[in-house]
Design a protein around this nucleic acid. Structure first.
Lengths: 195, 195
DNA sequence: TATATAAAATACCGATCGGTATGTTTTTGT
DNA sequence: ACAAAAACATACCGATCGGTATTTTATATA
């Protein structure tokens, strides 16, 4: 691993939470130099421009949540338990190892959908791939006789994601623990209803 | 109505969609002068600063959607039909009279939750008031024997909002009509399950 | 250890940022 | 119709924006 590669990773690691908190437009180059202790010359020596840092930051933030999900799912054998990881995913969203600022998919989606095609595409792909993953789990659960055979695959998957993301927004916005609890119960209920 | 009041409203009306599309940090004063055809002096003659325009813009965007909801609900007599307005609300969200840029509550929540306390508070109040309105409708529906008596009032209300807001994010982000349709069906199903 | 090379710091660029002080033009009440 | 006041335009402010050219420092290799 070369010096340049290490510095690149260092910059991304330090600045990813900033982009997630302040957004793309709200994050300045001086935010990046302050967070890293490096200078502009160093940032621009390792990245083409601000866009490239932002994209790498999204990838970093996204990887944190997707690898958490995968690792937690691997701990369970039944497909119902794997799906239920989404409830704890949601419950723990505001603690480590999740990045500050809430869900990076949601944050990026809202800011970039009308303004930044590249970031938008990243977020869009994340949603689609998440949906596919859930559909796959449900399908295997059906084959495995864990779930009913008449479950609406795609509708269940995409609606579960909508519920979780909407729930993250509400919980973070209002700070009300009770809202978080209630929505988490709905997530659990939606999964229990598959059986 | 004085000239100043008319100009103030004119500025808000013209700039509200810009704030909703570009966000607070992404909208500049020159965006405001371009959209209105006015000059900086005129903007700052009617508003203290950028913040004040942004807050008025949020109020304007929020009023558009809340008055739509109220007007549509008033067209129906049963509480189930009133609640089902949320499905058409969601289905029509990307056409007039809804402001460009998606749901202003959602947009403001995501950008402002860590960065702008005043805007955050506006969005937070909007969610809480929306939840109360839904709870009230369900309660009346229960008293009216339209809905089951064991419905979880607050959980149903807050989860319905989460589903809708998450759905708006996904639909706008991916542009996939099928996702929108599927989530809308989930909204309808959640309401039908109250009976 | 000397030298070539890569990486980081410095210093600077024009443009735009949010905001203001000062004119000039329109309203407004009489 | 007129003066006072309000509204709007112009011109400008320092600060910061994203980005670059150049110089200094660190690293790798012979």
């Amino acid at each position: 691993m070369s010096k340049a590669e290490r510095t690149r990773e260092f910059i991304v690691e330090k600045t990813a939470p900033i982009f997630n908190v302040k957004g793309y437009a709200g994050t300045s180059i001086s935010d990046l130099t302050e967070a890293t202790g490096l200078t502009k010359g160093s940032i621009y020596g390792n990245f083409e421009n601000k866009d490239e840092v932002a994209l790498a930051a999204f990838d970093c933030n996204y990887k944190k949540i997707s690898s958490y999900l995968k690792a937690e799912m691997d701990k369970h054998s039944s497909y119902k338990e794997k799906l239920l990881v989404h409830a704890s995913f949601y419950e723990n969203f505001f603690k480590a190892p999740f990045p500050d600022g809430g869900c990076p998919i949601l944050n990026t989606a809202i800011e970039a959908d009308d303004t930044h095609p590249q970031l938008r595409e990243r977020a869009s792909e994340a949603i689609t791939s998440w949906k596919s993953k859930i559909m796959e789990l449900i399908k295997k659960g059906i084959d495995n006789k864990e779930f009913r055979s008449d479950v609406q695959l795609e509708q269940t998957a995409i609606s579960l994601i909508a519920l979780i993301e909407g729930g993250i927004m509400i919980a973070k916005l209002t700070g009300k623990l009770n809202y978080r609890k209630l929505i988490m119960q709905s997530v659990e209920k939606a999964i229990n209803d598959l059986t």
